[in-house]
């Protein structure tokens, strides 16, 4: 029962964050919303399948998407400008 409530919360927040992310105009400001959605999805991954490996999957997904957001933001900002 507790899983279900948590799942509902995560699902609703994921949808909400995804919507706001897509509605937001500015690229930089989209990223925090994407971040919230990543949190929610990582939660969903674990809650959907209760198994030690799904922790690995959640971390992989979270780190991966964080890396993606990091790369997008950095690339938009111009990257390392020292060369």
């Amino acid at each position: 029962m507790a899983e279900l409530i948590a799942l509902y919360i995560c699902g609703v927040i994921a949808l909400f964050a995804a919507l706001r992310c897509l509605i937001e105009k500015d690229t930089y400001l989209k990223l925090p919303y994407l971040n919230v959605m990543n949190f929610a999805v990582a939660g969903i991954i674990v809650l959907v399948l209760n198994h030690p490996l799904s922790l690995l999957a959640a971390v992989a997904y979270f780190v991966g998407s964080t890396l993606e957001a990091n790369a997008i933001a950095s690339a938009k900002a111009g990257g390392v400008q020292n060369d």
């Binding site: 992310c21 994407l34 959605m37 998407s65 993606e68």
Partner: peptide
């Protein structure tokens, strides 16, 4: 970023089927 949103929506489907190894690789390759 929108692609990232889409991928975020797809990942739970993979996990739900129980293919955790696949999910890990997909999450890292994206």
């Amino acid at each position: 970023i929108a692609l990232g949103v889409m991928i975020g929506g797809i990942m739970p489907f993979i996990v739900d089927r129980g293919y955790l190894d696949v999910a890990v690789v997909v999450a890292l390759v994206a």
